[in-house]
Nucleic acid binder design. Structure first.
Length: 422
RNA sequence: GGAGUGGUGGGUGAGUGGCUGAAACCAACAGUUUGCUAAACUGUCGUACGGGAAACUGUACCGGGGGUUCGAAUCCCCCCCGCUCCGCCA
């Protein structure tokens, strides 16, 4: 959520930046400020009335002590008449704040100045493109065909066990999947990330704090115990620091976590969702930073470079996109997408998305640190995938295929124990 | 699932109606001193919002919500969560 004082101070700039995000409803911002004015004036009135009651109550106590019962009775009547006024104002102020919150929740994060203009994926800026694509002198198969040929994963079996979009990894495919998990984690740990294994279900508060609720409720699986299955490890991991005040020296906090991720992805069908391109349950290794506001964009660059290095180490051709305003997510201030080229599908697959949320999440999370003047200040939060497994798996299968089997990238061989998947 | 017990500031923990926004201790921070990777002493030390240029000041908050009362951390009701024992299971 945006911060109202910022909104007040930089209204016209914020409006200008938001239109870059294709956000049309700019009058919402003015409405928020109107509600905020009302909030303040109600608060002032209420505080004054409460003060009066407090003073009267003290006098009642004294009067009773000195056995001046008639004064006490008189004061009680005064207090009672104030109470009616207070309960009216209380109701008004509650309604006011709820309305203001709900408006505020509809306003997306402000894109950073560096975010390019644009509405569609075509407007994203390609920052770098690295690596070579394989030249096949045979007919290259998409990964869903390779999966059948080499028994790597089985989607039909998943349908039997659960439903569409729940792949069952089998044999060497399962080993490769496990190798990827471990390799990614080890790579992150070498770069000073601290590993956690979070719960796969979270409560309502956690889902709200990172912004999954209320807007994306339909995207999450929900259990009878009122827990949400996590759509990404970002949710539990970032929530570790919910409602905390950190010391400046603690920053940045760099965490990594492997988890299964669960997404309902309602209403998506067709070619883009074949094979592992889009599934309901998948594996992902996530990185999360809690950062000092002055350093967060530095850290965004580091995270982006970190993921790029990881992709390069797998020998995959990749490119880095700086997303344009219109293609960014609601809560992000700036996002890099990393994509690998799938030679057999002949298209780019998004395998990581690295974002700086600035204070947008931190405001809900209440993650703060003591700044130099001793005041509590919101941290910035960032996160990214490092990496999402299914599409990496797809890209490895497709790009490393030979007529004899799938070659395993060198860095993974110590983890798989075999060099060719056949 | 059954029974019991409890939720207070960064932590431990006192507090059963006004003198309690909250003792004490620990941690943290600042300073003094003896000078040596430490100890002792002194001081500071919750959060949010409002008013104010500021010093400062007001209000709210003792798991959450409601109620009783002039006045609630303290009494009543509902809900949530933790812990212990039993049961079940890995």
């Amino acid at each position: 959520m945006l911060l109202v004082p910022q909104l007040r101070e930089h209204l016209s700039e914020i409006k200008a930046h938001l239109s870059k995000k294709n956000f049309k409803d700019l009058s919402l911002l003015d409405d928020v400020l109107t509600y905020d004015d009302e909030r303040k004036s109600l608060k002032t009135k209420l505080d004054g009335l409460n003060q009066q009651i407090n003073e009267i109550s003290k006098k009642v106590g004294q009067a009773i002590k000195t056995e001046d019962l008639s004064t006490a009775e008189l004061l009680k009547t005064q207090s009672n008449s104030l109470k009616e006024e207070i309960s009216l104002l209380n109701a008004a102020s509650k309604a006011n704040e709820e309305k203001m919150e709900s408006l505020l929740a509809q306003i997306p994060n402000i894109p950073s100045a560096k975010v390019p203009e644009g509405m569609t994926p075509e407007d994203n800026q390609v920052i770098v493109q690295v690596g070579n694509r394989p030249n096949f002198d045979f007919e290259a198969l998409p990964h869903w065909d390779l999966a059948k040929k080499y028994k790597i994963f089985d989607l039909e079996l998943g349908v039997k066990l659960t439903g569409a979009g729940f792949p069952v990894f089998t044999g060497k495919g399962a080993v490769l999947q496990r190798a990827l998990q471990r390799y990614f984690l080890d790579f992150n740990i070498k770069k000073d990330y601290y590993e956690v294994i979070p719960p796969l279900m979270v409560n309502r508060e956690s889902a709200f704090a990172t912004g999954q609720l209320p807007d994306k409720e339909g995207q999450m699986y929900y259990t009878q115990d009122e827990f949400y299955l996590i759509p990404t490890a970002e949710v539990p991991v970032t929530n570790i620091y919910r409602d905390t005040i950190l010391r400046k020296e603690d920053l940045p906090i760099k965490l990594t976590a492997f988890s299964q991720c669960f997404r309902r992805e309602a209403g998506s069908y067709g070619k883009d969702v074949r094979g592992l391109n889009r599934v309901h349950q998948f594996d992902k290794v996530e990185i999360v930073h809690i950062s000092h506001p002055h350093n967060s964009y530095n850290e965004l660059e580091q995270m982006k470079d970190h993921v790029a290095e990881l992709l390069a180490s797998l020998g995959l051709e990749y490119r880095v996109l700086l997303l344009c305003g219109g293609d960014m997510s609601f809560a992000s201030a700036m996002t890099y997408d990393l994509e690998v080229y799938s030679a057999a599908q002949e298209k780019w697959l998004e395998v990581s998305s690295v974002s700086n949320f600035e204070t947008y999440q931190a405001n809900r999370l209440k993650v703060r640190f003591k700044n130099d003047s001793g005041k509590n200040e919101l941290c910035h939060t960032l996160n990214g995938s490092s990496l999402a497994l299914p599409r990496i798996m797809a890209a490895i299968l497709e790009n490393y295929q030979t007529p004899q089997g799938i070659r395993i990238p060198e860095v993974l061989v110590p983890y798989t124990g075999f060099e060719v998947l056949d």
